[in-house]
Protein backbone atom coordinates (compact mmCIF):
# COMPACT_ATOMS: atom_id res chain seq x y z
CA UNK A 1 0.00 0.00 0.00
CA UNK A 2 1.21 3.52 -0.78
CA UNK A 3 0.11 6.51 1.26
CA UNK A 4 0.51 9.92 -0.34
CA UNK A 5 0.85 12.63 2.29
CA UNK A 6 2.57 15.21 0.11
CA UNK A 7 1.39 18.75 0.71
CA UNK A 8 -0.29 17.80 3.96
CA UNK A 9 0.99 19.57 7.04
CA UNK A 10 1.87 18.02 10.38
CA UNK A 11 0.40 16.32 12.34
CA UNK A 12 -1.96 14.98 9.68
CA UNK A 13 0.60 12.73 7.93
CA UNK A 14 1.40 11.22 11.31
CA UNK A 15 -2.26 10.53 12.03
CA UNK A 16 -2.67 8.97 8.56
CA UNK A 17 0.36 6.79 9.25
CA UNK A 18 -0.81 5.84 12.73
CA UNK A 19 -4.17 4.71 11.38
CA UNK A 20 -2.65 2.87 8.42
CA UNK A 21 -0.10 0.99 10.52
CA UNK A 22 -2.91 -0.52 12.58
CA UNK A 23 -3.76 -2.81 9.67
CA UNK A 24 -0.86 -2.67 7.22
CA UNK A 25 2.31 -4.73 7.60
CA UNK A 26 4.08 -3.06 4.73
CA UNK A 27 3.66 0.53 3.63
CA UNK A 28 5.23 3.20 1.46
CA UNK A 29 4.71 6.78 2.56
CA UNK A 30 5.31 9.84 0.39
CA UNK A 31 6.05 13.15 2.10
CA UNK A 32 7.37 16.57 1.18
CA UNK A 33 8.10 18.07 4.57
CA UNK A 34 11.23 17.42 6.58
CA UNK A 35 9.24 17.93 9.75
CA UNK A 36 6.71 15.24 8.87
CA UNK A 37 9.46 12.97 7.55
CA UNK A 38 11.38 13.00 10.83
CA UNK A 39 8.23 12.54 12.90
CA UNK A 40 6.92 9.67 10.76
CA UNK A 41 10.25 7.86 10.64
CA UNK A 42 10.56 8.14 14.39
CA UNK A 43 7.02 6.93 14.95
CA UNK A 44 7.26 3.92 12.60
CA UNK A 45 10.50 2.77 14.18
CA UNK A 46 8.95 2.97 17.63
CA UNK A 47 6.05 0.85 16.37
CA UNK A 48 8.51 -1.90 15.46
CA UNK A 49 8.84 -1.30 11.73
CA UNK A 50 12.03 -1.43 9.73
CA UNK A 51 12.22 1.86 7.84
CA UNK A 52 14.13 2.55 4.65
CA UNK A 53 14.23 6.14 3.44
CA UNK A 54 14.81 7.80 0.09
CA UNK A 55 15.13 11.50 -0.59
CA UNK A 56 14.47 13.01 -3.98
CA UNK A 57 14.74 16.80 -4.05
CA UNK A 58 12.11 18.05 -1.63
CA UNK A 59 10.29 14.73 -1.54
CA UNK A 60 10.77 11.89 0.87
CA UNK A 61 9.85 8.25 0.50
CA UNK A 62 9.62 5.90 3.46
CA UNK A 63 9.35 2.13 3.05
CA UNK A 64 8.10 0.49 6.19
CA UNK A 65 7.98 -3.21 6.90
CA UNK A 66 6.94 -4.93 10.11
CA UNK A 67 9.99 -6.55 11.66
CA UNK A 68 8.21 -9.66 12.91
CA UNK A 69 6.84 -10.67 9.48
Amino acid sequence: MTLDARGISCPEPLIMLKQALKTEKELTLLLDSKNAFENCQDFAEKQGFAVETEKDGDEYKLHMKAKNE
Binding site: R6, G7, I8, S9, P11, E12, I15
Partner: peptide
Amino acid sequence: GMFALNKGFSLGRAY
Protein backbone atom coordinates in the same frame (compact mmCIF):
# COMPACT_ATOMS: atom_id res chain seq x y z
CA GLY B 1 -8.43 19.33 18.74
CA MET B 2 -6.59 16.02 18.33
CA PHE B 3 -9.92 14.24 18.74
CA ALA B 4 -11.25 16.29 15.80
CA LEU B 5 -8.14 15.43 13.73
CA ASN B 6 -8.55 11.74 14.53
CA LYS B 7 -12.17 11.99 13.44
CA GLY B 8 -11.04 13.20 10.03
CA PHE B 9 -10.50 16.96 10.26
CA SER B 10 -8.05 17.95 7.55
CA LEU B 11 -6.85 21.19 6.04
CA GLY B 12 -6.28 19.34 2.80
CA ARG B 13 -3.32 19.41 0.55
CA ALA B 14 -1.17 22.52 0.35
CA TYR B 15 0.53 23.39 -2.90
